[in-house]
Design a protein around this nucleic acid. Structure first.
Lengths: 146, 146
DNA sequence: TTGTTTACTTGACCACCTCAAGCATCAAGG
DNA sequence: CCTTGATGCTTGAGGTGGTCAAGTAAACAA
């Protein structure tokens, strides 16, 4: 143990700290999205669209009902941030694709998360690596049970 | 640098990892809340009520409009999880207090966050302390600008 | 007293979310 | 072929969460 190590925190303390940071990052994201006239949900969807994605896949990613996605994509499409394209191999599915404008907007939203970005700048390379390592170990266990 | 330290992650990688973990914990929380018939917002409000809290203070904590809180408390009060009490020193303010049942429910919700809890169990005392230390340093910077 | 600020509620309006129902398409078996 | 059953998406109803504008009541200050 290094000289600066704190006493072992309780699990509850860690959970609260994680929650606080998660909330702060989410607010940072929502604020950046709002700055471009997007709700956080719309921005989140846009962030998933690296390639064409069927509506169903989107619903699975968002862990929500498929009918919900219809409305969200409707509103994004009305702003030309996204397009619905017919799937060539299955006429039931519609692939959602981000337009150039959509890609541009979500790129800017990411760049404008200054609170999160600034906070991470206070870590040096070593600390970043350590944090990344610990969080990467936490991730799989947290994503399991739904 | 210890022998197991990974190459320095990019800031983008860290942001995505933080977002993934934040989302996972939020879903865990929402699922536990739903198990008791609560929405995540209702559970979040209940979690803040350690003591009597004026409506206005709640709105500030939640970073939302005061009129929004009215509806949330209405629904919680309809289930007897919360009570509105007149403030003795200022007749304008209504203090929100969790009922015994409300305290009980939120206690159970916290206990049932098994995905998060289980994931944290995989860290030993040293790792927990390190994680806590790093996150605690991140927190103030992330909560600043709104 | 008069005027200003503060706390809360109401009503209108939109986004998000779920469920149930419906339509079109695919895929398998007679 | 054609029926039967899944699957993908949309629609409509209904509730929650969120904002804004306006209104009421109480506190406060000149």
């Amino acid at each position: 143990m290094s000289a600066t190590t704190s006493p072992t925190p309780t699990k509850l303390q860690l959970m609260e700290l994680l929650a606080a940071i998660g909330t702060a990052q989410w607010r940072d994201f929502a604020a950046a999205a709002a700055h471009h006239g997007l709700t956080s949900t719309q921005a989140k969807v846009l962030a998933q669209l690296n390639g064409p994605l069927p509506m169903r896949a989107l619903a699975t990613l968002l862990v929500c009902d498929a009918s919900n996605v219809t409305g969200i994509i409707d509103r994004l499409e009305a702003r030309s941030l996204v397009r619905r394209e017919p799937d060539p191999s299955d006429r039931r599915v519609k692939n959602v694709v981000a337009t150039d404008e959509g890609r541009d907007v979500i790129r800017r939203v990411r760049e404008e998360m200054q609170a999160t970005s600034g906070a991470l700048d206070t870590l040096d390379a070593d600390e970043s690596a350590t944090l990344h390592e610990l969080l990467a170990r936490l991730r799989p266990g947290m994503e399991k049970s739904a």
